[in-house]
Design a binder for these strands. Structure first.
Lengths: 194, 194
DNA sequence: TTTACGTTTAGACAGTTGTAAAACATTCAT
DNA sequence: ATGAATGTTTTACAACTGTCTAAACGTAAA
């Protein structure tokens, strides 16, 4: 992101950032991402084009900021790297809740942006990288030969796959069912034992 | 893809398609995908712009055709949906070979296009969808509660994750080691039994 | 050879993109 | 309040995109 959330944000800048990201999300519910030009976006947000480029490198950079805002709404701190660990399921529930709380927005967006579109891809990729970082931060040394980093990526991409299936692929699924999915996919032995 | 590989291709059309895709792959080894304009591409391929748009919708459409050509080089037919099945590992080996045979090209491309770039994303997404189709085509009815389609996606995205790790992330890994990875990630119980 | 057909090409078009320089507005310490 | 620093807006620009039209081309049947 061009804009650095770490640095202090003036009231004016915050207002501008909010206006652009909310306008983008609104327009995503109306038309495909490819059809949204920076021109039209600025028109709708009622800001000059130069201001847009003041805060963002391009459309994609704004998207990243949109996902950042969404992600920021939920605390995702107590994650363990081990799916048999109880804190893993707690983290999974938090992630489920994050997506669930934006259910309507996601439905609207997907209705104009297919699952294999650049937009959905960008969305998935952003959250995958966020979760990968969280998973690998507390990864335990494991008995496997597979590198820890690869395992962390595997966990997060699997979790995202399930979220995509449920919330973007429009397969209504309760949190409890979703928990079964993630256990079956990540720990097949777990299911056999039961 | 705008161009339909199913329809008969005249000799002239085949030459044009080949020229564009090879030029694209060559340029990807020289600069990032975002910096490659259709103009420059046509210049390098020595074809007029109108011809480009005759065959492809845009840059991305040409990319898809590039991956299609790559994919076509290898037979990927005998795939089973079950990772404990021997044919699954046979298929995995074929996929490993496919990427391995383009090792130099992938190195060159990645040196100008980071792992989280649009380009690499597009590449991964294309092959994930190809493998998903193959895996679900022969998916066996399973004891899991997780939908078959979701499981197929999980298999293919995991396989691609490993390929990305090895060939794009530049972690030299033998085929035997790669086989260990895929077994550990997809069938942890399998490893425990051994 | 001529005709007819589909494909390829040249050129032009309106709209978009990202950048740069300068004008303008705010904020805040002095 | 004054002035410096910072942030915002205007305007202009060169380059690119995707589409269109009409002309040029090749090929295969009459």
């Amino acid at each position: 992101m061009k804009y650095d959330p770490a640095q202090k944000t003036t009231r004016g800048a915050a207002r501008t950032l909010k206006a652009f990201s909310e306008t983008m999300l609104m327009m995503l519910g109306e038309k495909p991402f490819e059809k949204i030009s920076v021109n039209a976006l600025c028109e709708a947000a009622d800001y000059p084009r130069a201001t847009f480029y003041n805060y963002f490198d391009d459309k994609y950079d704004l998207l990243t900021y949109c996902w950042y805002r969404m992600r920021r709404e939920v605390h995702l701190d107590q994650i363990s790297g081990d799916p048999t660990d109880a804190t893993f399921m707690a983290a999974f529930d938090q992630i489920y809740h994050l997506f669930d709380s934006h259910h309507d927005l996601l439905i609207a967006v997907v209705s104009h942006n297919p699952l294999d579109s650049q937009l959905v891809n960008h969305f998935i990729q952003y959250f995958t990288s966020v979760f990968t970082e969280l998973f690998s931060a507390r990864a335990k040394p494991q008995a496997l030969k597979t590198p820890v980093e690869l395992v962390a990526k595997h966990y997060s991409s699997t979790v995202l796959l399930i979220m995509e299936w449920i919330f973007l692929g429009q397969h209504p699924t309760t949190r409890e069912e979703a928990e079964v999915y993630v256990r079956e996919l990540l720990e097949p032995s777990f299911t056999c034992v039961e």
